Every structure is written in structure tokens, then in C-alpha cells.
Amino acid sequence: MKNMHAYLLSGKNTISTEAEALVSLAARLDDTFIKAVEILLACKGRVVVTGIGKSGHIGRKIAATLASTGSPAFFVHSAEAVHGDLGMVTGEDVVIAISYSGQSNELSTILPVIRRLGTKVIGIGGNPSSDLAKMSDIFLNAHVEKEACPLGLAPTASTTVTLALGDALAVACLEARHFGASDFARSHPGGALGRRLLTHVYDVMRQGDDLPITTPDTPLTQALAIMSSKRMGMTCVIDKHGKPIGIFTDGDLRRLIQKEGDIRHYLIKDVMSAQPKSIASDALAVEAASVMETARVSHILVTDSNGVLIGALHMHDLMTAKVI
């Protein structure tokens, strides 16, 4: 139990130390941060993030965050840059160079070459008097009073602060570019948000020969055969202009049998539900899901700008497309 208490205390101390470092960072952000954001926004090429060791790991995440929030970016390992990867950098790029000590041999080797290209350099480190600070157009101070590591050796608070600075740059650029949810979705087409914001009704609706359609005077028995063959659990009822005037579902059928018993003499117009829910084909699929959920129905019809039936959706179609 004594050891367990020590573990808990250690965890709390680590988090508190890093939280204090973040609060201190926020308090000292100044015009240099504004200038760094302006350099990133003016970039005509790519943002190239570079670093080595733990700074390299943090740099990879910063590059990934920038790239997914509207600032095209990639990571180049400083050691690899020394041996050829520096050829990826152009004069139209912006380099974010990360080194807490600011004395990385690899950065000290490549930054003069980068500067000769005319490339702007944003340095992030913990020593404003370091070589990195001197070779940067803008230097962002990531200094921390102490690391969370009790030995003061393992980068902990300093890497957290560096990561937060990268996030701050990315978010400031995102907001300046008015980068919205739809833009984010285009960067994440395989994710849940991407599917919700990029999938339209026309992408998932049933149409053509897959669509169960009847006219008002269709006998119910014939309508049931159409429903069975199309396997959608309903049939759309349209008028002579192709506009939907009703819908008849498996649920309607069960309720009708329970109430009437013999249903063979009915026409579909006698038993259909009038004024079915419909949606435009260019609406987002998630909007269709919302309408269906609100109305507590499993189907929704799809119409064109003239109100003509062109498709239909079952809730299962949205589930299959992973929209819901």
C-alpha cells in the first residue's frame, strides 16, 4: 500500500509540474509568436519540421497536426537531412527547427544551408542564447523551470511545452484560414468525421431498379411482391408525375394484418401512409439520419428539385456506410 501511495504521488507531481510549465508558457507568449504565425501563413511551399531524439518525436506530431489542419507539412529527421534529405527543402518552405538545448550538431550543420536558400526558420528551444536561437528568424522560447523527471534528465515538461507550442501554431493558423469542419473532414476521409461530412445522400441511396415503386391503384398483393423482390422493407407510392404521395412498410403490413386479417382486397392507396418523409439527394447523409431519427422512421425518400422520386434510404444503408 505504501508503494501504491508513492506511485500516485509521483503521477500527480509529474502532471502538476507539466501543467505549471504550460501555464508559464501561455503567460510569456508575445509578439514573436504572432510573427511565427505570420511566417507560416505567408508560406508558399511546405512547412518542414525537423529535430532529433525526443525533439524529433515531438516534431513528427507537430508536422502531422499542421498537415491535418490546413498547413501542408512534413517531418525531416535532422540526421537524415545531413545525409541528403535536405534536398526536400526549398526556398519557398518554412522550417520549424526543434532542439531544447539549441546546440544540436545536426541542426547547426543544416540551418546555415537552409538559410542560404532563403528559407525562413522558426526555432523552438529552451535556450534563447543558443546557436538555434541565433540562426532562426523567429525563436519561440520553450524553456521550463524543471523537468518532471526527478533526475532532471528525461525530457518531460520540456517536450510537453514544445508540443503545446506546435499545437498553438497549428490552431492559430487554422483559425486565421477559417479552416472548418468540412475542410478537416477532407483531410480525414477515412475517419468517422470524414464520413459524416463528406457522404451525401446520393452516395448511399437506393435508386433505379433497386427502388420499390408502385402506383396508387396497385393491388396490395402485387405491392407486397414488389417489396419482397426489392428487399427494402417498403414500397414508394408515386403519382402520374413521379412524385411520392405515400409509403407502405413492413411495419404497416404487420399492423394491417393484426387489425383486418384478410387484406387481399386492398389497393395500396387504401393502406399507404401519406406525406412520406423526403430529402434532397445532395443533402448530407447524416442529415437524412437526423430526419429519420426525429420522425422515428426507418426509411426516407429522395427527391429531385422538382419533387420527383429518384431514390430512397433505409437506416441500414447509413449504418453500412458507417455514417451512423
Score class of each variant (00 low, 15 high):
M1Q: 10
K2N: 12
N3L: 15
M4V: 13
Y7I: 15
S10Y: 13
S10H: 14
S10F: 12
K12V: 10
T17C: 15
L22T: 09
V23G: 06
S24P: 00
R28A: 07
I34V: 15
K35I: 11
L41Q: 14
V49M: 05
T50M: 13
I52H: 00
R60Y: 10
A67I: 04
A67Q: 10
S68C: 10
S71L: 12
F74I: 09
F75Y: 13
V76I: 14
H77D: 14
H77I: 04
H77A: 05
A81M: 05
A81K: 02
H83Y: 05
H83T: 06
G84M: 09
G84K: 04
V89T: 03
T90G: 09
I98C: 02
S101N: 12
S104K: 02
E106M: 07
I114M: 09
T119L: 03
G126F: 04
P128D: 02
P128Y: 06
S129P: 00
L132C: 10
K134F: 14
M135D: 10
N141S: 08
A142N: 04
L151P: 04
L151E: 07
L153V: 15
P155D: 08
S158I: 03
T159C: 11
A164W: 06
V171N: 03
C173A: 10
A176H: 10
G180C: 08
D183C: 11
A185W: 08
L193M: 12
G194D: 13
G194L: 12
L198Y: 12
L198E: 09
V204I: 14
G208K: 15
D210H: 09
T214S: 06
T214A: 15
T215Q: 15
T215M: 13
P216R: 11
P216A: 08
T218D: 06
S228E: 04
R231Q: 12
M234Y: 04
G242D: 11
G246P: 03
T249C: 00
R254A: 01
Q258M: 01
R264E: 08
L267Y: 09
I268P: 01
D270A: 15
A274T: 13
A274C: 05
Q275P: 02
A285S: 05
E287I: 00
A288R: 02
A289P: 01
S290K: 14
S290P: 00
R296F: 04
V297G: 00
S298M: 00
S298C: 00
L301T: 01
T303Q: 06
L309H: 01
I310Q: 08
L313K: 01
M315D: 01
M319R: 02
A321G: 06
